[in-house]
């Protein structure tokens, strides 16, 4: 690949400080530690993991809602640490946009569709009312909404249509990157397929780069080019989608794949049973965070922390993968 990566993330960290009371020391929550990846135009990176794995934190960092505590992030060639924040903020907003999980919560219930879609244009461009309207109508048609929907309120739409509105809003500034935070997990199966198809079409048409955050592995397998599996804020396995799904290396990835129900009736599939709950990110286990739930854990796993290393096609953070 000779082209420049749209997102270059190097060892991103995000810590939150939690006030725990008057006389106790403040706790530090490691929401994300050490995510690195490159994402190119027209590609999809899927971030996979269970709750508390840091995938939403990553989304907030990428969309500039929050600043990383440490690490290097450049979007479209602009390094966020060195750039003049105020000046590039506007430019970056037109580079990266986001679609949220809950299509019922992400649209302002008191604004009409037209106003929701116009908002980014009013804030970020000098277009006049007619130009804005043209752009809004153009996108509404593209995502499969009708012109007369422009005067309706979000509550008059079904979940799938609302997600179309949200996608239109994300695309209205012509971004190069779209962060999709569980965009279809709140939708019914038949609608989910419609929205996924729309996303795939838009990507091919506009050459968008997607950061696709999801817990649904069957959807990820379908849409992703690269996969980043995270556990308790740390990446555990990363690589091309094919490689990760066909030959998972990390025991957590293996367990996740085997726990995902499949719509076939062959029940003899070997199951890897994960015992125990997800540990609290406030008090992560020592050594490898996954060791209390791992079948293969050894004494070494409790003490030394694995780092991401390249093994064949994928990078894995596991002491036992040789």
């Amino acid at each position: 690949m000779n082209q420049q990566a749209l997102i270059q993330a190097r060892d991103l960290h995000k810590y939150y400080t939690i006030k725990s009371g008057l006389f106790q020391p403040n706790q530090s929550l490691q929401a994300l530690s050490g995510a690195s990846f490159d994402l190119y135009a027209g590609q999809t990176l899927a971030v996979v993991g269970e709750s508390g794995c840091g995938k939403s934190t990553l989304a907030r960092l990428l969309t500039l809602i929050e600043q990383p505590t440490a690490g290097q992030l450049s979007l479209d060639g602009i390094d966020l640490a060195t750039a003049n924040k105020k000046r590039v903020a506007k430019q970056l907003r037109q580079t990266i946009q986001m679609v949220f999980q809950d299509p019922f919560g992400s649209l302002n219930p008191r604004q009409k569709v037209g106003d929701i879609l116009q908002e980014p244009l009013i804030i970020n461009t000098d277009l006049n009312a007619n130009q804005r309207r043209d752009r809004v109508l153009e996108l509404m048609q593209r995502v499969g909404l009708l012109d007369e929907h422009i005067h309706r309120y979000p509550h008059m739409f079904s979940g799938g249509q609302r997600q179309r509105i949200a996608i239109a809003r994300a695309l209205i500034l012509k971004p190069k990157i779209v962060v999709l935070d569980e965009p279809v997990s709140a939708l019914d199966v038949s609608i989910q397929a419609q929205v996924l198809n729309l996303l795939i079409e838009l990507q091919q048409e506009l050459g968008l780069a997607y950061v696709f955050i999801s817990h649904d592995l069957s959807v990820v397998r379908h849409i992703a080019d690269q996969v980043l599996v995270m556990y308790l804020g740390k990446p555990v396995e990363q690589g091309l989608s094919e490689a990760v799904f066909n030959n998972p290396q990390h025991p957590y990835t293996q367990a996740l794949l085997s726990a995902t129900p499949q719509a076939n009736t062959d029940r003899k599939r070997k199951r890897i049973r994960l015992t125990g709950e997800l540990p609290s990110p406030l008090n992560p286990p020592s050594g490898c965070s996954f060791h209390p739930r791992c079948q293969n854990a050894t004494a070494q796993c409790k003490t030394s922390t694995p780092v991401m290393e390249q093994h064949g096609d994928v990078s894995v953070a596991c002491l036992l993968v040789k």
Binding site: I65, R93, F100, D102, G105, S106, P120, I123, R169
Partner: peptide, 16 residues
Amino acid sequence: KDYVTASKVAGAGPIR
């Protein structure tokens, strides 16, 4: 709520 975050991502200032 997400719609407020969405406005923030779109670059809305505090008054808006």
